[in-house]
Computed example of a mutant assay.
Amino acid sequence: MSEVVAYLLLGSNIGDRAAHLQQARRTLAATAGTVVAASAFYETAAWGVEDQPAFLNQVLAVCTALDAPALLAACLATEQQAGRERMQRWAARTLDVDILLYGDAIIDTPTLSVPHPALPGRRFALTPLAEVAPQLVHPQLGQTVSELLATCPDPLAVQRWVAH
């Protein structure tokens, strides 16, 4: 199989959030492919279940030879290595790794939907994605990431994070 560029969203809101994202980047670089671009860290209030700590998010562009199901397995293994426990949807977590886009593929299976179906409505995903790939076109909607961000209905503020 030839290589494809996949865009992954990392998120953490438990413990040393920045360290979780940094370790995830190292793990994914070792297991999923070459990280060809990485956004800054962005902080946003929790989405879904709001009574929890703020998230740090980062987007990685990964050049991978893995097919989409194998990349998903690598993402899930990276979450597990970081101590992710799945007890409640949208609960606080040490690490979340989502596949936002996998080349221009459109995938809809019981275990994987790509492009990520919620991407157009999530500012915390679009903001870091727009930093690394503003002109990337959503394969279903035909709009660039910048255009999606400009019309995103999500009211949550997303701020570039600076370590204290």
Rank of each mutant, 00 (worst) to 15 (best):
E3A: 15
V5P: 03
L9S: 15
L10Y: 03
G11L: 05
I14P: 03
D16T: 09
A18H: 05
A19Y: 00
A24P: 06
R26N: 02
R26A: 13
L28Q: 03
A29P: 01
A32F: 11
A32E: 02
T34D: 11
A37I: 04
S39C: 05
A40K: 00
F41Y: 15
F41P: 01
Y42W: 12
E43P: 10
T44F: 01
A46I: 13
A46R: 07
G48W: 02
D51Y: 02
P53M: 12
F55R: 12
F55I: 14
F55E: 14
N57L: 02
N57W: 06
V59F: 06
A61E: 09
V62P: 03
C63E: 14
C63M: 13
A65G: 15
L66E: 06
D67L: 01
A68H: 07
P69L: 11
A70Y: 00
L71M: 01
L71Y: 08
L72E: 04
L72F: 09
L72W: 06
Q80F: 05
Q80L: 13
Q81F: 04
Q81E: 10
A82Q: 12
R84A: 07
E85I: 15
R86N: 13
R86W: 12
M87S: 14
Q88I: 15
W90A: 03
A91L: 03
A92N: 04
A92F: 04
A92H: 08
T94Q: 03
D96E: 11
L100S: 07
L101T: 04
D104S: 13
I106H: 06
T109I: 11
T109Q: 10
P110R: 06
P110Q: 08
S113P: 00
V114K: 07
P115Q: 10
P115M: 10
P117N: 11
A118R: 14
G121I: 12
R123F: 07
F124L: 10
A125E: 11
L126F: 04
P128Q: 08
L129W: 05
L129N: 11
E131T: 03
P134W: 00
Q135L: 08
L136Q: 12
V137D: 03
V137I: 15
H138A: 06
P139D: 04
Q140A: 14
G142V: 08
E147D: 02
T151W: 00
C152I: 08
C152L: 09
D154N: 10
P155N: 04
P155Y: 13
A157F: 01
V158Q: 06
A163R: 12
H164V: 14
